[in-house]
């Protein structure tokens, strides 16, 4: 596996606040790396250092094996960056802005690069509009077009879906997934589902420290990674009978009663377990009113890692 970005022991402080502390990770070719953490965890600072906006206090960042301090221009050429809050020149038209970026990037054929980026992000029909007049969803796509105009190998997207409505979020996600087929992506987010939807590997950062770096599957299987189902019946049920029946299902870890007609089932986080609970309910002829996933394994892992760090 080729490593595109290697971050080794990087720290950064603002005044006396430690924003990033001894972070080490890699971005490998062809993966979408989710960079997950609560607001203020140090995600943005880490991205600012990788993109060369800010120097690291200590540690080393290599892009394509070359230290970004020694060859900042080469590193910047390899990276497309959508900063947090998607800053744009709001008084320019889409086309003026992309022309500016293409020229700054020094792409060989600015017209073709612009056309490709606009088509890719579906903004051709707004090319003559002033950016400040566009909806947030369109602006986000303009920001993405800016990031891919020089066809970089690496894309760094900092909270790309922030502040979008659900439909726009789905669109942006689709776009990121598409881009991820040909590029290696670091996707920063504080929203788990966003990372889960597109990322192949996840890094969880909390209070400036990396607390987990693993594939989605492995994170789900961590000890605390349980799924919790909530089962509601139409009538009251005997606790023992329900518990004993459910406990026979492989993958069920514990059953507890919430109310006379409601139970909580903790499972080991495999998807089929839910289906098996349902089948059991059918064969037992239970008067099932509701069966739903109350909290999910990855979320639990995420929360326990974050809380563990905070305590």
């Amino acid at each position: 596996m080729t490593e595109l970005i290697t971050v080794t022991g990087v720290s950064k402080s603002y005044d006396r606040i430690r924003a990033v502390e001894g972070a080490s990770f890699t971005l490998r070719k062809g993966e979408i790396l989710g960079f997950l953490g609560p607001n203020g965890a140090g995600k943005t600072t880490a991205m600012k250092m990788i993109t060369g906006y800010m120097p690291a206090d200590t540690g080393e960042i290599r892009v394509h094996g070359k230290n970004i301090v020694d060859d900042p221009i080469a590193a910047r050429n390899a990276i497309g960056y959508l900063p947090e809050n998607n800053p744009l020149y709001t008084d320019m038209t889409v086309e003026e802005y992309l022309t500016f970026v293409a020229e700054m990037r020094g792409v060989a054929d600015p017209e073709a690069a612009k056309k490709r980026a606009m088509e890719r992000c579906a903004i051709v029909d707004v090319r003559h509009r002033i950016i400040g007049h566009l909806s947030k969803g369109y602006r986000q796509r303009v920001g993405l077009a800016q990031a891919i105009i020089h066809d970089p190998e690496i894309l760094i997207l900092d909270e790309p879906a922030n502040g979008l409505d659900p439909i726009q979020i789905t669109e942006i996600r689709g776009l990121i997934r598409d881009l991820g087929r040909e590029k290696s992506v670091i996707l920063c987010s504080h929203i788990l589902s966003e990372v889960e939807a597109v990322a192949s590997r996840v890094i969880i950062i909390n209070q400036g420290k990396i607390v987990a770096d693993d594939t989605l599957e492995n994170l789900k299987e961590r000890s605390s990674g349980h799924n919790i189902f909530r089962i509601e019946f139409l009538t009251a049920k005997d606790e023992r009978a329900v518990a004993d029946t459910l406990a026979k299902i492989p993958g069920v870890a514990a059953v507890s009663r919430v109310a006379n007609d409601t139970f909580r089932v903790k499972t080991k986080g495999e998807r089929e377990t839910g289906n098996q609970i349902f089948r059991t309910a059918v064969t037992q002829n239970w008067d099932l009113a509701q069966l739903h996933l109350e909290s999910r394994s990855l979320e639990n892992t995420f929360l326990s890692l974050i809380e563990g760090g905070n305590s």
């Binding site: 993109t51 906006y53 960056y81 900063p83 970026v101």
Partner: peptide
């Protein structure tokens, strides 16, 4: 926009 500008090559 400073961030976009200063991360250009």
């Amino acid at each position: 926009t400073m961030e976009v500008l200063l991360t250009m090559p």
